[in-house]
Amino acid sequence: MTAVASESEATFAAQRQAELRRRALAPWILMLPALLIVVIFFGLPMLLMARMSFNLHIDQRLYVPGFTFEHYVNLFSNPLFTNAIWTTVQLSVLASLATVFIGYVFAMLVWLKPPRWRLLMIGLALCPLLISEIAIIFGWWMFFPKNGLLSFALLSSGLISDKISLMYTEFAAFIGLIYVTLPFCFFILLSIFDGLDKRLLEASADLGASPVTTFREVLLPLTWTGILVAFSQSFIWTIGTYATPSALGPDTLWTMGFLIQEQMLGKHNWPMASAFAAVLVIGVACVMAITRSMQSKRTAFHA
């Protein structure tokens, strides 16, 4: 009797153990597909790219296996490249700030407005995502030049007396970038706003806070994380987008993305392109780290 009992107890214990192990393993098994995708489609190419950046570039070949820091040295000694880094970062930061600002106002309006406006506004925000970047560029080409829509509109509204062209200006590149990234910003921020109780604004006003104070004290802190996420998202897009600034900006607007593609395709210099891309990736990672560290330490209130 006792022997049987202890035996079944042992089996039970073993089953329990197995069950606990299974439970410990479950999250890993569930994460596996995502992990595989991340490793295969992002990790490996990144490693290959890093390796490529140290290869040699001699004669007409795309690359020659080897090990050199030459490309990194070139990158930081050639003013063309250093200027491009500076220009690109500047443009991306400014465009991202503007995008976040516009996206924030837009998302806030959608959040505050009655639901009947919502679908229309969301539909509007989706539009840029439905069109390819190239098609959007062609659109701007109809919009910005001297004989374009903008000039025509301003002229016929009497705001200007002579045709103007904003084509091939930093401003056009700036607007182009904002347009490309705005939907992403908007949807990130809208999802943050949708998580907020609108009564908080009333509660704040009720306790004597003016709208400006309510914004500073309530809305801004509660959407701060969204702002940072939207900013880094926008920054990643703007810093990586090369067709738009190159097609809309002035001749001398050489962005990192443009130079990478030039090195890769035009000059057949894969190591140089990789080194440049590696710097871009590291730069983006830094910005991500910075924005993450700026996120509210008081995440406890989400607990």
């Binding site: 004669d59 007409q60 070139n74 050639n78 063309l80 001749d251 000059k267 210099n269």
Partner: peptide
């Protein structure tokens, strides 16, 4: 092309100077 390629970046840098000097 063999000769240009040996010095490609120098050509490219110089051309970008030309672009910078001749635009707006």
């Amino acid at each position: 092309w063999d000769k240009i390629n040996a010095n490609y970046q120098a050509y490219d840098d110089r051309m970008k100077q030309t672009v910078a000097r001749t635009s707006g």
